[in-house]
């Protein structure tokens, strides 16, 4: 690991009122890494992801992008974030949400074009051609004119992935991308994510799909109570867990297995 980390967190803390959701997270993400983040609900895994592109502002600690700290430190150690700086950062970090968050007043194609047009200022023709290519990549070349309400959950999520890809992001964040899908629609989304993995992209994925995490990830994190309890290659983390908490967590997934 000689390369500088693409993303790095330093003693990251997030509190909601009295509740400490992230309790000092130190994490370095190298280019090309595919990190699956596991943990039970309330472990802070989604919050960690959302702090990386500042959907949530960290309460304390820093995030470094390409070695440079995000935000400016004040005299008393507090960090100030300017929304326009964060916006510039987010165009380089793509995010896919559990609830898709497609814009309902735009067609699938317009959803994918929106970032390149509005944020990157690309001309319409170029943005449209690129958007069509991204839709084709997620297997929806023929649904560009459909409004989100006319698409199935799996299709909506694939459009959302295309929307993130259209910005040519350096990192992709997936926040439980299949958790709100009907079981029979999970596969089509996971196949798209796997195809992206095969391109060698840097990705972080919060998921409950253990099998997918095992095959997809180059590295697995297990979070509990806002801390990283285990961190290592999927083979070791999932097959020979050391921490008792992780063993209990994994056991719950096999309880009704057959």
């Amino acid at each position: 690991m000689t390369e500088a980390p693409l993303l790095r967190t330093e003693a990251l803390v997030k509190r909601f009122g009295d509740l400490t959701v992230l309790d000092g997270i130190d994490l370095a993400v190298q280019p090309g890494e595919r990190i699956a983040i596991l943990g039970s609900s309330g472990s802070g895994k989604s919050t960690l992801l959302r702090c990386l592109n500042f959907m949530e502002l960290p309460t304390a600690g820093r995030v470094h992008f390409h070695g440079a700290p995000v935000g400016t430190a004040g005299s008393r150690g507090e960090v100030r974030y300017r929304e326009r700086d964060l916006a510039d950062l987010r165009r380089r970090i793509g995010m896919v949400f559990q609830q898709f968050n497609l814009f309902p007043h735009m067609t699938a194609l317009e959803n994918v074009m929106e970032g390149p047009r509005t944020v990157l200022g690309q001309p319409r023709a170029a943005a449209e051609a690129a958007a069509r290519a991204e839709l084709a990549r997620v297997g929806l070349a023929d649904r560009g004119d459909a409004y989100p309400a006319r698409l199935s959950g799996g299709q909506q999520q694939r459009v959302a992935i295309a929307r993130a890809l259209a910005m040519q992001p350096e990192v992709l964040l997936f926040d439980e991308p299949t958790s709100s899908l009907d079981p029979e629609l999970v596969g089509e989304v996971l196949r798209v994510i796997r195809a992206l993995a095969e391109e060698g992209r840097t990705m972080l994925l919060v998921t409950h799909e253990l099998g997918f995490a095992y095959h997809f990830a180059t590295r697995v994190l297990f979070l509990h109570d806002g801390r990283i309890l285990e961190d290592g290659p999927p083979e070791r983390i999932l097959k020979t867990p050391r921490e008792e908490r992780l063993q209990q967590f994994l056991a719950r997934f096999t309880e009704f297995g057959f």
């Binding site: 959907m55 916006a87 380089r92 814009f103 509005t118 944020v119 993130a164």
Partner: peptide
């Protein structure tokens, strides 16, 4: 909230989020 987040996640600035979404 998801609409605000979806717009912010593709790098829109506050005025763009308001105007476009």
């Amino acid at each position: 909230r998801g609409q605000w987040e979806g717009a912010r996640a593709i790098g829109m600035r506050p005025a763009q989020v308001m105007r476009r979404v």
